[in-house]
Amino acid sequence: MFDLDVRSRKPIYEQLVEKLKELIMNDVLKVDDQLPSVRTLAQQLTINPNTIQKAYRELETQGYIYSLKGKGSFVNATVKSVNIEKLEKVKKELVRLLTEAMYLGVSSQELERLIADIESSLGGGRSND
């Protein structure tokens, strides 16, 4: 389903949480879809089942998934909080890129122009609030 970088500095369980969130946010895993069982995932990725259990628990406390006893884990309907988190991420990324652009000498007028261009290419029908 996906691959992890076991040599990465990031803890494996964090990587797992992020990967699964990504799949949920991008609707690859839809609401009420069943997540692969701990056993299958451990076998597929050759990682410790306890790590997967931990990642699932984390996702459950964050509200991304719910689990049914004896049946497994399923994707929760949490579109709103998911979007907020995604928005936060995008904003952070934007700040980083804009800072870099300004360092490189892009003026704020130029940036505004860029934004206007993007807006019109998106259809421009949206109100500017």
Binding site: V38, R39, A42, Q43, T46, I47, N48, P49, N50
Partner: peptide, 8 residues
């Protein structure tokens, strides 16, 4: 993989 499976 064999070890992990037995653990799971």
């Amino acid at each position: 993989n064999l070890i992990v499976q037995d653990v799971a």
